[in-house]
Simulated scan of single mutants.
Amino acid sequence: MKKLFIFILLSVLLCGCQPKMNLFPDGTDPLLEQTLQGEGPDKVLVITVAGTISDEGKRGLFGTEPSIVQEVSSRLKLAEKDVSIKALVIKINSPGGTVTASDILYNEIMLFKEKTGAKVVVSMMDIAASGGYYISLPADTIMAHPTTLTGSIGVIFIRPKIDGLMDKIGISVEVSKSGRNKDMGFPFKPDTVEQKQIIDEIIKNYANRFQALVKKHRSISDKKLQKIFTAQVFSAEGAKKAGLIDNLGYLTDAVEKACELAGIPKNSKVIAYKRKSYPNDTLYNSASSKVFNPALINIDTGNLLPPSAGFHYLWMPAVH
């Protein structure tokens, strides 16, 4: 069997044919309910948010993945139809992402709460910074792993600048434009004073929105907010002292808290929506969605390069 598979794979690569081989599930396969533990009519849904938050899918060596926005929103829409789901646990391991993608997920979680009345608990893993914290704000309880890093309540504008290199090698780029700020942020020229002021104003607007949501969802003193709004990261203990989170605990503690808030038994059924079954599945298994296409090799360089130009709720050191 192994030799047959290798023969087929080599044949496809050599002939350049591109048949669709659903050896692995992809974003077009239906989400199926998988029971992770527990029993009874009441359910707790676990959704994972892992990686940089974006509405763009990822390409790998042999397959593609739907975007985090697509994966999370599709699960929430499916869960809205199940009245047995009394609570939602969101497992977050993310340094954040784009401003818009983070805001979309925040809004999707808020709408889910309003439509279903379900209780929401966030369980932070390694990192839940910037946009990863932003999407945590709708939760009834935010719980961090004892070794979590969180915070980074702020905005960063990323764009390449190579005008200095262009000057050194004697190459220039000529731009014809309809307005003096049409080329704002252009990598081949420095920004003017006016353009820098415009960019700073946009950053301020996005930061104000983030800060306003923190004030809306968390009861934190102005003195502590001053430190939080420097956009620093906190350890789990530091975040609890600052008021950014409610408790320290593990994923199992988050599930137990969700049951408590929803008023259902502690051993209620815990489920996840996945596109394939896994033997000996656990709470810690992140759902993956890939499509196998060996004739078309796509390498995602997103992990090797900085995030795309734009405004981000992102803690840069944790991007990978």
Results as ranks from 00 to 15, higher is better:
residue 58 K to T: 09
residue 56 E to D: 11
residue 82 D to S: 04
residue 64 T to P: 00
residue 80 E to C: 08
residue 82 D to H: 03
residue 85 I to L: 00
residue 60 G to P: 00
residue 60 G to A: 07
residue 82 D to V: 01
residue 79 A to P: 03
residue 58 K to G: 00
residue 63 G to E: 10
residue 73 S to M: 09
residue 58 K to Y: 08
residue 64 T to K: 14
residue 65 E to F: 06
residue 77 K to S: 13
residue 64 T to E: 14
residue 71 E to P: 00
residue 56 E to R: 15
residue 71 E to Y: 06
residue 83 V to W: 00
residue 67 S to V: 08
residue 78 L to C: 02
residue 56 E to S: 13
residue 57 G to W: 07
residue 70 Q to I: 04
residue 61 L to A: 13
residue 66 P to A: 10
residue 55 D to K: 11
residue 63 G to T: 09
residue 65 E to Q: 15
residue 89 V to K: 02
residue 69 V to Q: 06
residue 87 A to Q: 02
residue 70 Q to D: 11
residue 69 V to R: 08
residue 72 V to F: 06
residue 74 S to G: 04
residue 86 K to D: 02
residue 72 V to W: 05
residue 81 K to Y: 01
residue 79 A to S: 12
residue 73 S to W: 03
residue 59 R to A: 12
residue 55 D to V: 03
residue 89 V to N: 01
residue 65 E to N: 11
residue 72 V to R: 05
residue 63 G to V: 09
residue 62 F to A: 10
residue 89 V to S: 03
residue 85 I to G: 00
residue 61 L to F: 14
residue 77 K to Y: 08
residue 70 Q to N: 10
residue 55 D to W: 06
residue 72 V to D: 04
residue 56 E to I: 09
residue 72 V to Y: 05
residue 60 G to Q: 07
residue 74 S to V: 04
residue 73 S to F: 04
residue 81 K to Q: 15
residue 75 R to A: 07
residue 88 L to E: 02
residue 68 I to S: 07
residue 58 K to L: 12
